[in-house]
């Protein structure tokens, strides 16, 4: 590792105590290295002094998004619960209709058979009255 590399690590405190002493001695001797050290320290100090940046107000945007998401979540939640219910209702409806249809057919058949009996009686009576 060159002195220049060591200097970069020294700025962030990543050298051992012995290495740090060595590089500090080199900085005192070497004007070029000293200039680099000054620059790096200056940049670091300026970044630390960065004036605060007040927020333009984030809540409105965050809130609108949360609301929208919450609405969608509610719809999905309702959907997840309503779809099986609707499916079950549809099955029940179909079964009932089918049963009703069968019962209606039985009743109709019954009436048909009764009607046929009555008609045959009428025809039999007719035969008796008008031989």
């Amino acid at each position: 590792m060159t002195d220049r590399d060591k200097l970069l690590h020294h700025i962030d405190g990543n050298l051992s105590a012995e290495q740090a002493r060595e590089i500090e001695a080199r900085i005192r001797e070497d004007a070029e290295l000293r200039a680099e050290c000054d620059l790096l320290c200056h940049v670091q100090n300026r970044l630390r002094q960065r004036p605060a940046q007040p927020s333009p107000g984030l809540w409105e945007g965050v809130h609108a998004h949360i609301r929208e998401e919450s609405l969608w979540r509610s719809l999905v939640w309702a959907g997840k619960r309503l779809v099986p219910l609707a499916a079950a209702a549809a099955v029940i409806f179909v079964v009932l209709i089918d049963n009703a249809d069968t019962e209606a057919n039985v009743v109709a058949d019954y009436f048909d058979s009764q009607t046929e009996l009555v008609l045959s009686d009428i025809q039999a009576d007719s035969l008796v009255i008008y031989p």
């Binding site: 605060a52 940046q53 007040p54 927020s55 984030l58 809540w59």
Partner: peptide, 11 residues
């Protein structure tokens, strides 16, 4: 919570 941290997060 947003009001408390928005300046730091925005910065």
């Amino acid at each position: 919570l947003v009001k408390r941290y928005e300046d730091r997060i925005y910065g």
